[in-house]
Design a protein around this nucleic acid. Sequence first.
DNA 1: CAGAATCCTTCACGATACTG
DNA 2: CAGTATCGTGAAGGATTCTG
Lengths: 135, 135
Amino acid sequence: MATQTAAQKRAQAKAQYDAFLAACPSRQLLDRISNKWVTLILCALGGDGGSMRYSELSRQLAGVSQKMLTQTLRSLERDGLITRTVTPTVPVTVCYELTELGLSLRQMMRGVKSWAEIHMDDVLDNRASYDTGTA
Amino acid sequence: MATQTAAQKRAQAKAQYDAFLAACPSRQLLDRISNKWVTLILCALGGDGGSMRYSELSRQLAGVSQKMLTQTLRSLERDGLITRTVTPTVPVTVCYELTELGLSLRQMMRGVKSWAEIHMDDVLDNRASYDTGTA
DNA sequence: CAGAATCCTTCACGATACTG
DNA sequence: CAGTATCGTGAAGGATTCTG
């Protein structure tokens, strides 16, 4: 059977992909996930119950357009980082949730988001120094 | 003296910034660092001796244009994540190195880059399933 | 070697309007 | 509520040329 194909492939994967190479698929993947909205969506999901509706996400990610939100969610769903669940109520209810895979990436993303918040003032100071020529 | 201004501000910073808010400076910072080239540059620096020349970076980050490389390096320098050292040899020698601040972010970035490489096949499988409609 | 400056294309993204 | 579809623009980013 081929039920372990993915596992087998993954066993070799660790040495196979290299994002430093332009043609490597992992370069494109890195490009997709190195994105403001991806970071924020992954951080938002798993916040409380681990499941959020479209409108909740829209509210939490202040300033995101429907287009960007939908587009990013689709991309994440396609890559298997989140699941989309439609409940046929009236009106319809859609919930997004992290998969195991998405959860594993969320750890890093939380780190990146926190880094930005924690070191904001350091960066601001550095910019001020750089701009005024202060060594 | 104002030598501890930065430290004082940082003491409050942890609760002050929130990247979920559109107007928060940390949102812009998150946008800047959530970037393919930023990730790759930070990963490249600190690789060996911790210092790299412009041409070395250019070679390592396959496919990067001079414009993007220079632009990203300037941005990182301005934010205090890397230092730029010019040695007036003939021809001139320029070395880039991570600062403490840059080093702290590099940890996350290495994680993100590794994640992309390690989970590439998982993502590829998920995409195939999504595209063919295979549940 | 390590850029700066210019031009030019494309596409990311927002705004708007419509649907089940 | 949770989208899809269309349009328009501004800016990101590549290619090219020039310089200390």
